[in-house]
Amino acid sequence: MSAASASGILRVGTRGSALAVAQTTVVANAIAKASGKDVELVTITTQGDTSRESLASLGGTGVFASALRDALLASECDLIVHSLKDLPTGAHPGLVIGAVPRRADARDALCAAEGMTLDTLPEGARVGTGSPRRVAQLLSRRPDLQIADLRGNVDTRLGRVTGGDLDAVVLAAAGLERLGRADAITEYFSLSDAPTAPGQGALAIEVRAGDERGQGALAKALASVDHVTTHAAVTAERDVLAGLEAGCAAPIGAHAQIDDGLFFLTATVYRPDGTDHLTSSHAATPDGMNARDLAVAAHDVAQRVVAELLALGAADLAPLGGIR
């Protein structure tokens, strides 16, 4: 146990953006309630926060995770909170995902001027996004759109619409709702038409390996806040990325859900310009609804989805084999 834990305070590492702080605060409050310990937030600046380059050129959204992980390994904090879609799929030495709380809305949302939807945007409208997947999905429906690379916090991005620089932006619905900005949403995209990034809408609590086990306060708190069906669903989605050797910013959408005893997973690989895509859907029947049985089903269904996508030619459609 760390000195901080022994002293009765758990230090929770977070990025300093308004969204990161808002979602980390929710997790920290849950951890405090479950552990009986006081918590404090430790703000950490990442490369993704300071660089103005596109996320794709920086190597994907994993740039948000590295500084947080360094701080955790250096015992500057006791746990860290990530947006799960920003977390690389490869295991990080010395660290584990200790818990995944219940997922919020996984959908993407359009925030457009004058209440417009994607179908009612004018010809040649300028739409902002920093995601290659969203670019491909937008262009597949509206090849006339002009796509602008988008960086900055949520208010900065929305400000480009209210300021008239852009006609619309696409953002994660969960982030807007966590910040109390759902009023800016003019259209929600369905997960069947626009599957989102693996893990979108979910948070990951990462800890030093071993801290998730045993009878300590932190281990008990992690077990309390972990939502087993969300954890299994995002595991399947992330297994698709790992199996395709695709980076976090690859044009791939995936969504898993557990319904009526069945484990469903659908994944789509897009050509970056939106002119083509491949989709695979499979289901599994878990032996039970406990964490172990759901994890087995998650890995099984993901392996079948990956095998089918590769057999259909996914590697010829999108850049795979990238940084995970």
Rank of each mutant, 00 (worst) to 15 (best):
A22L: 08
A30D: 06
G36C: 10
A30I: 04
I31G: 03
S17M: 12
G16S: 10
T14Y: 12
A30E: 09
V27D: 04
L41R: 04
K37F: 10
A28S: 06
R11I: 06
D38V: 14
A30L: 06
L41I: 13
T25P: 02
A32W: 08
T24R: 06
G13K: 04
N29S: 12
A18T: 08
V39S: 02
K37D: 07
V26W: 05
G36D: 05
K33G: 11
G36S: 07
K33P: 01
T14C: 11
Q23K: 14
I31Q: 00
R11G: 06
N29C: 10
I31D: 03
E40Q: 15
A34R: 06
D38S: 15
A20F: 09
V12G: 00
A32R: 13
V26F: 03
A34Y: 05
S17P: 05
V27G: 00
A28E: 01
V27T: 05
T14V: 02
D38L: 15
V39H: 03
V27Y: 01
S35T: 10
E40K: 14
V21D: 09
T24L: 02
G36H: 08
V12Q: 00
T24D: 02
G13H: 04
V21C: 11
G16F: 03
Q23R: 13
L19V: 02
S35Y: 10
A20C: 12
L41W: 11
A32T: 15
